[in-house]
Simulated scan of single mutants.
Amino acid sequence: MLILLPPSEGKTPATAGEPFDPADLHFPELAPARREVLSALAQVSSSPEALARLGVGASLAAEVRRNTRLHDEPSAPAHTVYSGVLYDALGYRSMTPAQKRRVDEAVVVVSALWGAIGFADRIPAYRLSMSVGLPGTGKLASYWKKHLPAALEAHADGHLLVDCRSSSYAAAWAPVPERTVIVNVFQERDGKRTVVSHFAKHTRGELARHLLTRRGKAPDTPEALLKAAQEVRAAELVPGTARKPHALNIVLAG
């Protein structure tokens, strides 16, 4: 089983440590593409239109300036840099050493800057979303869609993929449908279901934690994933097709 996560919008900068080493990141075949994105991001972030180009407000100006010196910034494991609702619910810090090793092996983060990285890869904090367009790359979801399949298909071969990404990050790579299960979260009130945002992040993080810390064999089929999810939440499985992945729908009471 592999779990696909999006990065968090907010990042927790490392306060000390060596800069990231491109050679130490997972999926080394992405190195040339990463260099192109890093260069384009530094160029945009140093321009007078940086905030508008990156779609952020003035309160994030310091984070945008950091984008211009990422090769010199201190780095930390991705599970430390990424923060926010999903990662709080995942609760990596409270896991046992054995559970952390399992998480490091099973989680892949799909990123606008790095393409895809392992959960323990050391990275600096940065500000960039998948919906942004950069000079030379265009929209990053489309850019990474050209590069990620070659890097990720071999890594994913033989695994059940639990896809907890948001829509903009899911657009960057579409795994083989028959072994992929996307995780949807709905709230049900008076018999009516609605899509939720904040609670969806929390629930996906909660599900990822359960799957990675529970006893027994990791789910290796969509049906086994459904049973595991039902240990903590009401859920149902919508079977996929040759072109469409399976869907695990988690239903929260209103």
Rank of each mutant, 00 (worst) to 15 (best):
K11F: 11
F20P: 04
F20S: 12
D21Q: 14
D24Y: 00
L25G: 06
H26I: 01
P28R: 01
V37N: 03
Q43G: 09
S45D: 04
S45A: 11
A50L: 02
L51E: 04
L54G: 00
L54V: 05
G55S: 10
V56W: 11
S59Q: 15
A62I: 00
E63D: 14
R65D: 15
N67P: 08
E73A: 15
A78C: 08
V81S: 05
Y87V: 10
S94N: 12
M95A: 14
P97Q: 07
Q99K: 11
V103H: 13
A106T: 13
V109F: 06
V110G: 02
A112M: 09
G118R: 10
G118C: 07
G118Y: 06
A120E: 13
A125N: 05
R127C: 05
K139W: 00
K139H: 07
H147Y: 03
H147T: 05
A150T: 12
A151M: 10
A151S: 12
V162Y: 00
S168T: 10
A174P: 03
P175N: 07
V176K: 14
V181E: 08
I182H: 10
V183P: 00
V185D: 04
G191C: 11
R193S: 03
H198C: 06
R209I: 02
L211T: 07
G216R: 10
A224E: 15
E231K: 05
R233D: 04
A234H: 14
A234T: 13
E236Y: 04
G240F: 07
R243W: 03
K244Y: 10
P245I: 04
P245L: 05
P245G: 00
A247F: 04
L248Y: 04
A253Y: 11
